[in-house]
């Protein structure tokens, strides 16, 4: 089965069966990663570019490695060293890179909709690696993959997303993805970090962590972004940790089967205490490993789809 779109712009455009197609494909590649020589020739001769307009270590590296494991070349572009600093527009940058002959563009950008903008204007396939506070679809897919490995089918599972829901692309993509897979999702954070009409996603909203924490199967913690600390979204790190942090105290009260995820990088001592790192049910490192497999699946399905010509999106 193939994906309907030639791009991966968000979880929004995927239906449940497409999500499962990607996750099933990722399962195959996850096994490849455990081999002595973890590489397949699936995309030999292809090339993609990592077009990262925002700092990222793990996502850029993960995509880079995913491409390499598929025998696909991956070149990297970063804002600091590019002509963007000379005032080149996003469209110019993308068209120039495309003109060098790449099959796909993996883009991270601070502006919501930047990948959608490119997708309508370039011939290459576009993968959204995070656009503003909009979506981060591969993060959602790798989270779903990791949770399914641990818990099986997510239908009926209770998942709590904690933190800055308003400014988090991970929150949006995860909400969409978990909901499409049948999970019951709740979000929790201070009212200053809950965007309007979030209940349209079919989730519950909690302003106090302790009212919901002990009723869930999964705790999906979000990173507190540095700029929020100074924007009166909450008074102090101390109070944030007291109200919304996964502290050692709260960890002790959790049922032993509850699992904890975090998209990283973690602000230890803010949203999570150091103790969480050593907790047996913490899936942060498996998330990172699985991320490579999931991104291999995404690149493979999008690049492989090129073999049969498809009508370009308007």
């Amino acid at each position: 089965m193939k994906l309907r779109s030639r791009h991966l712009l968000g979880i929004e455009g995927l239906d449940r069966s497409e999500i499962l197609t990607i996750l099933d494909q990722a399962r195959t590649f996850r096994e490849v990663l455990d081999r002595a020589i973890p590489i397949v020739p699936a995309l030999r001769g292809r090339a993609v570019v990592n077009l990262f307009f925002e700092a990222s270590t793990r996502t850029a590296t993960s995509f880079n490695l995913a491409a390499s494991r598929l025998s696909c070349q991956c070149v990297s572009f970063s804002k600091a060293t590019s002509a963007v600093t000379k005032g080149e527009t996003l469209l110019d940058t993308a068209r120039n890179i495309e003109a060098m002959g790449v099959d796909g563009i993996i883009i991270r950008h601070a502006a919501a909709g930047a990948p959608h903008f490119l997708a309508r204007r370039v011939k290459a396939f576009v993968v959204n690696a995070g656009d503003g506070a909009h979506e981060h679809p591969t993060q959602a897919l790798l989270d779903a993959f990791t949770l399914r490995e641990k818990l099986g089918d997510l239908a009926g599972k209770r998942i709590l997303i904690v933190g800055d829901i308003a400014h988090s692309r991970v929150a949006r993509s995860n909400l969409l993805c978990f909901t499409k897979l049948g999970a019951r999702v709740a979000v929790c954070g201070p009212p200053t970090m809950i965007p309007p009409d979030i209940v349209d996603y079919g989730c519950e909203v909690f302003y106090r962590l302790d009212r919901i924490l002990e009723e869930v199967d999964v705790v999906n913690m979000l990173r507190v972004q540095q700029e929020r600390i100074t924007s009166s979204s909450f008074p102090t790190v101390r109070e944030y940790r007291a109200l919304y942090g996964l502290t050692a105290d709260r960890l002790r009260k959790l049922a032993p089967e509850v699992v904890i995820t975090h998209p990283g990088p973690v602000n230890w001592g803010v949203e999570m205490d150091f103790d969480v790192a050593d907790f047996s049910q913490t899936l942060i490192l498996p998330q990172v490993t699985n991320g490579v497999a999931v991104r291999m699946a995404v690149l493979y399905l999008l690049a492989g789809g090129e073999a049969t010509p498809e009508k370009a999106e308007g």
């Binding site: 503003g132 506070a133 909009h134 692309r169 309007p196 009409d197």
Partner: peptide, 12 residues
């Protein structure tokens, strides 16, 4: 507009 669509699209 801050509302349903800005939430959905993650727009400032």
């Amino acid at each position: 507009n801050e509302g349903r669509m800005s939430t959905k699209l993650g727009l400032k």
